[in-house]
Computed example of a mutant assay.
Amino acid sequence: MDELTRWRRAVVAWAAGGAGAGTAAVTARELAGGQVRTVVLVEGSSDQVALEALATRHGRDLGAEGVAVVPLGGATNIGHFLDVCGPPGLGLPLAGLCDVGEERHFRRHLERVGLGSGLTHAGLETLGFYVCVADLEDELIRALGAGTVQEVIETQGEWRPFQTFRNQPAQRERPVEHQLRRFMGTHSGRKALYAQSLVAHLDLDRVPRPLERLLEHV
């Protein structure tokens, strides 16, 4: 296990609290100095996969650059990770990515730890935090187009499950873009699988703005 991965795991354990938090904090502090230049806080593993895959397509290795992408395990955990990685804890440079529905959590806790006041959407971007509308999957589907996304589903061997899903009564009348987005969230690990695959098919001139701007920022 490389040291950046060890650091990321220590930070997650520290943020979670509990009996092992003290030891994890010591480990995170010891490793942070020489390994971490910037911490990117994202809602889940699919966001991490997408950002790292896009960086690779641009010839970058975020880990080698000291950019640690840390999944929060849900946007409501942002406060714990800001306490650990931000001014109250390690005091590291921060950036991040969230869904529009979770923007309020990010704003509130960034302000709480002293990283802004009365933050607007533009204010978040000034800090390096970018918002997906409505979420990462929606951004990628719009960038690629529904036809290309369905081709990717077919190459993943999931065309039949997708057709079964879209024929469910609750899905039949919905736009295909909505069906695609919902399908990606139906099984554990599917969002991350498609984050990788869809980024691989992106035209680099049509990268969703939040991903593009975040990668430029770090």
Rank of each mutant, 00 (worst) to 15 (best):
G118D: 12
P210V: 03
L72G: 01
R104F: 08
G185C: 07
H80D: 14
G20H: 09
T5N: 11
T76N: 09
E65S: 06
V131F: 03
Q179K: 13
A195L: 03
G128D: 09
L97G: 08
E154W: 00
G185Q: 11
R6T: 11
G101A: 11
A24D: 03
E111R: 09
L202P: 05
G59S: 13
D61Y: 01
L180T: 02
R181V: 08
L144N: 08
R104N: 13
D83E: 14
G157Y: 08
I78D: 00
I141Q: 05
V131C: 05
P169L: 08
L140E: 06
G114T: 04
G91S: 06
H58S: 11
G89L: 06
T148E: 15
F165R: 01
L51R: 00
Q163I: 06
D83C: 01
M1S: 15
L54P: 02
T23H: 14
V39N: 02
P169N: 04
E137C: 05
I153K: 02
D83G: 12
A50D: 04
A53N: 03
G20Q: 12
V36H: 03
V152T: 15
L82D: 03
N167W: 01
T186Y: 03
A200Q: 15
W14Q: 10
L4S: 13
W159H: 15
R206Q: 14
R8F: 00
V49L: 10
D138K: 08
V84Q: 04
L140W: 04
P93C: 09
L115I: 01
L214M: 08
R160F: 07
D83A: 07
E111C: 09
Q35I: 01
T164G: 06
L110N: 05
A146C: 13
R107P: 06
Q168N: 00
A55L: 06
R112N: 01
G73W: 12
R8K: 15
E125A: 11
P71R: 01
E43L: 05
F81K: 00
P93H: 07
L115S: 04
R9W: 11
G18Y: 07
L180P: 00
V133M: 01
L94R: 06
